[in-house]
Design a protein around this nucleic acid. Structure first.
Length: 136
DNA sequence: CGCCTTTGACCGGCGC
DNA sequence: GCGCCGGTCAAAGGCG
């Protein structure tokens, strides 16, 4: 996988950042290209792991669950969420890690284009420490 | 009532 | 082409 950092945040939870920058695909002038050759635009994506008893940590945004699937080689399902803010297409996935049921992997995809509804100090702190600045 | 989960169907990419 | 796999849709039902 990619490089990871271990760190702590309040509530005695450990956090591991997973840098997915290698997967980023910044498209410039994609509109000029022929439709037939148009490649799917990749949203910025990052994930991190928390040692938490609850699957859904409160990041201050409102999410609507739109799916849940079983993934291979993992007894735990993966859940899919969308940000419910109008026009905001941010998504996130949540799944537990096999072999360590205490670890939750959260993956964010996209950038919020609006302020957070209910700021969460814990969460903001995490992202800041991980050098992530998703327009909070 | 409005917003939320749940859940099976559906779909597209990829490997064989 | 076919089937697996991961991601999404949408109908139906739950709950405050």
């Amino acid at each position: 996988m990619e490089d990871m950092y271990q760190m702590f945040f309040p509530c005695s939870s450990s956090v591991t950042k997973v840098d997915n920058s290698a997967h980023h695909k910044i498209n410039t002038n994609e509109e000029d290209k022929p439709k037939s050759k148009m490649k799917k635009e990749r949203e910025p994506k990052f994930s991190f792991q928390t040692r938490s008893q609850v699957d859904i940590l409160d990041d201050g945004y409102r999410w609507r669950k739109y799916g849940q699937k079983a993934v291979k080689n993992n007894i735990f399902p993966r859940s899919y969420y969308k940000c419910t803010h109008e026009g905001c297409r941010v998504k996130k996935q949540v799944q537990r890690l096999l072999g360590d049921e205490g670890v939750v992997v959260t993956t964010y995809q996209g950038v919020h284009t609006h302020p957070v509804d209910k700021p969460s100090d814990n969460f903001h702190h995490i992202l800041t420490q991980m050098h992530i600045s998703p327009s909070f």
